[in-house]
Write a protein that binds this DNA or RNA. Structure first.
Length: 282
DNA sequence: GTACAGGTTCCGT
DNA sequence: ACGGAACCTGTA
């Protein structure tokens, strides 16, 4: 078992259920079960400042990387808190962290997220893992790893039909084929700057601006990227009185290196918690 | 029955 | 370049 002590700024609920990851579930005791790549895990707070991780892969380095444990949130939040509108979001969502998720898994997950809702996204991903992922025995339960590009590349649309991905099925296959063949080299993508990495990812069908930004933020730790979806665009427009076309530029300039973190707070506060928008001074 | 969901692609100007 | 419809499916 891995024990993480003296945790500052880390809330599992907000981190796992804020819409950046789709494979964590909370049970009746408040314990989170999930699968990361091919590692099943049980994660829970011992107390507010201590987290326990039991996993089929009890590797501290693996988990501290996934949780982006070394990143100092205090500094980022200190800067963001100067904005009065964000302050309320930061207080409400305190302890949200941006994960560093597996690149391949993040690509496929956010392809599936297009024009979709979170419960259904989860359902599709779980079914795909169950059918094509590796079986993992852990804690007396059965889990399924995320299918590799190689496995998915061999499938056709009929094979994928049971996961009920709808029109996204062909995009999943396109991603698998391009990654398995090396046409899109994931090892390289991680080394490229935002703009180039994004262009590389967008070679995949079903990966547009927003999905690519999500991949950069939620997998590669590019905290300066602000994925603009229908929610966050609407939120920024109303909160700051910005017209639609200026939003991308505005968030970039306003939140700079911490834009992605700002995005996550805004999304959590207004979209997940369902608070009503009210304008306030910038 | 109809509208809509954390977008992207495709097809018109 | 830019705007709008179409897209699978599930749920309200």
């Amino acid at each position: 078992m891995i024990k993480l002590y003296n945790i500052d700024h880390f809330n599992l609920e907000q981190t796992f259920l804020c819409g950046q990851a789709f494979r964590w579930e909370k049970d009746a005791n408040g314990v989170f079960y999930g699968v990361v790549a091919n590692c099943a895990a049980k994660v829970y707070h011992y107390d507010q400042n201590t987290i326990y991780i039991e996993s089929s892969n009890p590797d501290l380095v693996f988990w501290s990387n996934y949780l982006n444990f070394s990143f100092d949130y205090n500094k980022a939040e200190e800067l963001l808190s100067k904005d009065k509108s964000l302050l309320a979001c930061i207080k409400a969502g305190n302890g949200i962290r941006i994960l560093r998720q597996d690149l391949w898994e993040t690509i496929v997950s956010f392809i599936i997220s297009a024009n979709n809702n979170i419960p259904r996204i989860k359902k599709i991903i779980n079914k795909m893992c169950e059918l094509f992922g590796e079986e993992i025995q852990f804690d007396g339960k059965v889990f399924y790893g995320f299918p590799t590009p190689e496995v998915l590349a061999k499938l056709d649309l009929a094979d994928l039909a049971p996961i009920r991905a709808g029109f996204r099925d062909k995009y999943i296959l396109d991603a698998a084929k391009k990654v398995a063949s090396g046409e899109v080299n994931l090892g390289q993508v991680a080394k490229l700057n935002n703009k180039t990495a994004k262009a590389e990812l967008m070679k995949i069908k079903g990966v547009g601006t927003k999905v690519a930004d999500c991949i950069l933020l939620f997998s590669l730790g590019r905290h300066d990227v602000f994925p603009l979806d229908v929610w966050t665009k609407r939120i920024v427009q109303e909160l700051y009185g910005i017209d639609e076309k200026s939003v991308p530029d505005f968030v970039c300039k306003k939140f700079g290196n911490n834009a992605g973190i700002a995005q996550q707070y805004l999304y959590y506060y207004y979209a997940i918690e369902g608070n009503k928008l009210q304008s306030s001074a910038v």
